[in-house]
């Protein structure tokens, strides 16, 4: 065995990709839009697939979602996890159908569900990868979400890199100080169990350390007028003052709504239902 420093598929790479996803560092179409419109776009495309069982319509939605993922420049980690999940799901659907004595009708029904979930997942990825923490919390505030929620979202993003690093450190502590399993077991299952156990145990020290450090945070928030802002409307106006709906936003919404309508029309013209394929 020879250890090498790897740039891809290493712990460092995973940490970097998480941060890149959270902080929208890759840009993309949706990062240039008004965040409120992005959320509205997301809500439309996340709900639309649930109103139909028509496979034509669902296929169009799936393709739309795939295009939006490309336009939003979703990173390789998330895309990789998604595709891996999709393949595994397809795999176990087939196994389940065969094992429980189902036939092709079952497969088709489960495939319809997969198309719906796939479309909704991809649209979620496209939307949230494009919103950086400021924009997301401002959009929530604009849509009348409570101040505390908006702050919690942006604070969560701010703490994310720190917590990821801390998790890595505590996990390394466990790795170095506890004993690796004596034998690897069949296909290394003992090692996997050991690692899962260490991952879970690593959360407790992080909770405790975070509890200690937020005491200062809460006090400091008081001195920066945080509770004052909840009773003073002016701060909300100032914070949301920069949000502006532009031509790009209108264009994207128009195209999206048009495509949704077209999808339903196509489904009406050439319907494919479960019963047809069985």
């Amino acid at each position: 065995m020879a250890r090498k420093q790897r740039d891809v598929l290493s712990v460092e790479w995973i940490k970097l990709e998480l941060i890149r996803a959270a902080y929208a560092t890759r840009g993309g179409l949706f990062s240039r839009m008004d965040p409120r419109v992005v959320l509205l776009w997301y809500v439309i495309l996340a709900f639309a697939p649930w109103f139909t069982h028509n496979l034509t319509v669902l296929a169009v939605f799936f393709v739309m979602a795939a295009v939006s993922v490309i336009l939003a420049r979703v990173g390789p980690l998330l895309l990789g996890l998604f595709i891996f999940g999709l393949i595994m799901e397809a795999g176990y659907i087939v196994v389940a159908a065969w094992f429980f004595g189902g036939d092709s009708a079952t497969v088709v029904a489960l495939a319809a569900l997969s198309l719906k979930l796939g479309a909704v997942s991809m649209v979620s990825m496209a939307a949230f990868v494009s919103l950086d923490p400021e924009k997301l919390s401002d959009a929530l505030l604009a849509l009348k979400a409570p101040e505390l929620l908006a702050f919690a979202v942006s604070y969560g993003y701010r703490m994310l890199p720190i917590l990821v690093e801390e998790f890595n450190t505590v996990f390394d502590n466990y790795r170095l100080r506890s004993a690796p399993p004596a034998t690897k077991g069949l296909l290394g299952w003992r090692v996997v169990v050991h690692w899962v156990k260490m991952s879970v145990l690593s959360f407790y020290p992080i909770f405790l350390n975070t509890a200690l450090s937020v005491r200062t945070t809460v006090e400091a928030l008081e001195t920066r007028g945080f509770t004052y802002a909840t009773i003073n409307r002016r701060s909300r106006e100032i914070r949301l003052g920069y949000l502006r709906v532009s031509l790009l936003d209108v264009a994207v919404m128009a195209v999206t709504v048009g495509l949704v309508i077209a999808a339903f029309w196509a489904g009406h013209q050439w319907p494919i239902h479960r019963a047809d394929l069985a």
């Binding site: 450090s213 002016r234 106006e237």
Partner: peptide, 25 residues
């Protein structure tokens, strides 16, 4: 504060500095 890292709550520096004045409107 002594543990000043725990006092920084916003993602970017500019927003962190503007946090106080914005909260006070």
């Amino acid at each position: 504060y002594q543990d000043f890292q725990n006092q920084l709550v916003r993602p970017t520096v500019r927003d962190e500095i503007a946090f106080g004045p914005v909260n006070f409107g």
